[in-house]
Amino acid sequence: MKHKLLPLSETMHYILLALREPLHGYAVMQKIERISNGSVVLAPGTLYGAIENLNKHGWIEPVGISGRRKIYKITTDGMKILSIEHDRLSHILSLYEEGEIHEEM
């Protein structure tokens, strides 16, 4: 059965991508703002809830503490989810490209 968090929301997707390196919450937000070219700016309630959710499903895990901040990193299960999403999005992209060929014809 398909997991209830799939397909990933934009927020969850970006967090999983960002946590391929270990980071604490605020740094996750900063990194996402950077890698999304400023288009995704997470608010704290959204970030906290998403981290909770991803942690609960075992897709990310705490790997350390820096001061009062908890540091998280993606798990192997999380990497599997990213690869499922990668295939889904590549397929959708391929449909976009097909569409362009038909229009040219």
Partner: peptide, 15 residues
């Protein structure tokens, strides 16, 4: 600039 504590529909819905 950012005055909200929720930035997507999913988290607002969960709230």
């Amino acid at each position: 600039e950012q005055n909200d504590i929720f930035s997507d529909r999913e988290s607002k819905g969960n709230y």
